[in-house]
Design a binder for these strands. Structure first.
Lengths: 168, 168
DNA sequence: TTGGAAAGTCAACAACACTGACATAAAATC
DNA sequence: GATTTTATGTCAGTGTTGTTGACTTTCCAA
């Protein structure tokens, strides 16, 4: 059921349930490795993955609004607010009232925040760099293709656009 | 710093910090998509991702011990025990005392458990299948290569061995 | 027989998500 | 100008999933 004993052009071997399950497990184990290094660092600061994500996206898109961050991270404002509050308290980010629209808060990393971001992303980049170097550019291209195809379409636009609209 | 303006053979363009950051974000967004379908289904049963993982690995390696599952999942026995207890209570799994070693508990899916596993993995496989079909076999091969390289080495062995040792 | 491994349990705690309700300020619209 | 909508923040409560620490039971093996 779902399996196919004799793979042909209609049912290539890389689409068997067995291969798909293999891919699912690979994602699970790889994501563990992917987050392992930042997680280790974050415990030093009594922060969690949520702080890492916030800091990452504020760095990537400096001056982003709370609302925009909300949609990118896919969490509720209450959940995000808890994280932002501690980051503000610890002066890792700062929040500036929008000039054009004074309801909006634009988020920026402070110097300390940028340092933490660097520490976190450096560890993560090192692991990815090692993996990329090990497998070569063709495999990396395939990796990116598959990941993009696995994303939800509405999230894909957040990913493909490295620069967003909002800055004052 | 870390960047390289003129990519050459020593510093190919696919290893720039920019490209690595892109890969990191791709992993983040793709993992969200990867778990979205099972998460939706799990809320119907008031279960979470931890239940999915347990059911997946018990199905993959029927008769596995609690201790083995512990290492594969990378959680504490207290955390796993909470999940297993509810799955046992709801008769989705059953636990049999080991014949050779009576301290060990070997875990099996019940019929209902196998049904849940199928429902969860089917949704997940469908997404992966669509992605694989969309990008083609070469990209998929690259995808697998990168994921395996990103894993922690001690987790990689759990992944590569589809069959484990323990059965009575 | 004693030591230690495997399994299970209890309690307490923390991170991080959720819902729902409410408040404030400002923009947009009627 | 009054009303509605939007953006943000906050409070309270809840649930899942992880942690540590302490303790017990079972049982294999030296």
């Amino acid at each position: 059921m779902g399996q196919h004993p004799t793979p042909d052009d209609d049912f290539p071997s890389y689409l068997t349930d067995q291969q798909l399950r293999k891919g699912i497990e690979a994602m699970f184990f790889a994501y563990r490795g992917f987050t392992a290094d930042p997680d280790r660092i974050l415990t030093k600061y009594t922060y969690g993955r949520a702080h890492h994500r916030a800091v990452h996206f504020i760095n990537r898109n400096s001056g982003t609004t709370v609302n925009n961050l909300l949609h990118v991270l896919g969490v509720t404002k209450q959940s995000l607010n808890r994280v932002l509050r501690t980051l503000l308290r610890d002066q890792l980010i700062e929040s500036r009232i929008g000039l054009r629209d004074k309801r909006e808060r634009h988020l920026f990393l402070t110097k300390a925040g940028a340092e933490l971001e660097r520490e976190l992303s450096q560890a993560q980049r090192q692991r990815i760099r090692n993996a990329y170097q090990h497998v070569g550019p063709e495999a990396v291209a395939g990796f990116h293709k598959v990941l993009e195809a696995v994303m939800d379409p509405e999230l894909r636009c957040h990913f493909t656009s490295l620069k967003d609209d909002d800055n004052e």
